[in-house]
Design a protein around this nucleic acid. Sequence first.
DNA 1: ACCAATTATGAACATCGTTCAAGATAAATA
DNA 2: TATTTATCTTGAACGATGTTCATAATTGGT
Lengths: 217, 217
Amino acid sequence: MNIVQDKYEQRSQRPATLARKTELAARLIDLADAAIDAAGVQELRARALAEAAGCSVGAIYSVFPDLDELILTVNGRTLDRIDAALAAAVLGCTTPMQQMERLASAYLNYAVDHRGHWSALFQHRMIGERPLPGWYATRLDLAFRHIEGPLQVLRPDLDEASRVQLARTVFSAVHGVVELGLSGKALSGTPETIGDQVQILVSAIAHGLAWKNRELK
Amino acid sequence: MNIVQDKYEQRSQRPATLARKTELAARLIDLADAAIDAAGVQELRARALAEAAGCSVGAIYSVFPDLDELILTVNGRTLDRIDAALAAAVLGCTTPMQQMERLASAYLNYAVDHRGHWSALFQHRMIGERPLPGWYATRLDLAFRHIEGPLQVLRPDLDEASRVQLARTVFSAVHGVVELGLSGKALSGTPETIGDQVQILVSAIAHGLAWKNRELK
DNA sequence: ACCAATTATGAACATCGTTCAAGATAAATA
DNA sequence: TATTTATCTTGAACGATGTTCATAATTGGT
């Protein structure tokens, strides 16, 4: 996978140059990743990044069209990490209820442990700016897919499209509690309190869905 | 209510000056309010605001310590408007289920109709910056309070503290669906789809809570 | 060794929010 | 009313920001 070649530069290049650019791209991604994790996406600075990478400021723009695109690439990594955390969370869980609780807890834990990474996912491009790239939605879907397993047990009557949409809805609901909790705009803000509320929410949703299913029979 | 006198300037002032400042403050708030509604908080510019208000850039800083504080004041107005919208939404509703559905719909509608106002509430000060002022939490609580009515019917067993916390949790969940829906990061993004998912979520939560209550009896 | 094409550089640019010396203004005083 | 003094208002200047592009450095072929 060659980021530079694949995504931004298609025109003729000297072979040595391309190798250097891909290496620089990797270094920039790593550094931006660490910087965002440490201080948040708002504190990412082009000049500081260039100095840390040992290159000129202009070099950044020979590899990424702008900082937004670099941030988006880091966000892609974050989505992968969250996906991995969710996958690990459901291992050894049998009941759909327990699976959903573990998934929600894992999501909250990632947000608490990596607030910079996590908030960069949503703090960025909230309004109608450039549309998100296709691979972004694909990776988001991969993360959502973990919720579909327990949902299929709770609501076997739903077709796949409805289940996919419901998975996104449940994810969004948990996300809302995590977001307003961590931002201090609702709830008391401590991870424990947020965790309690996430559990209460997931439990209510799961029981509500199960009740709906029982009603249909 | 005199914003300038009450909040930022306590020292001796000339009477004519104070009158002018309060008038300027009101004008700036109105203009910022309209600008945020029209183009979003990200597009608010000190120079443009000064020109629109017919004052110098420095004059803004004689009335507000910085733009953040002005935005926060506008956010206070937005919270009042949302509070009013929620209050109007539950009029004539009898069942707790219907009340919660109407409340969620009203919240979504406000967000759709006033995305600038709405996103300014959350897009701003997400990370650990200055703590939110006390009146901000108070106004947020007023908005949350509308959900407590139906919750009291669904879960009469809860004490007030738990009910307050549950109200915030339910609000956060609905907010999450609205946010990820409107940002296009989950769900298809059309207000209709988001509305459908909000209804499904609220229904599940309400049934889940009611089931929990029945179980306790 | 030379040259032409390509690539890297970092000062310069446009734009922010914010400040503060200096001019304008209003109250106090003679 | 004229003068003084305290206060307020102004907008150019400051420091930072992301981004660009003329210029210098470098590379690969002849």
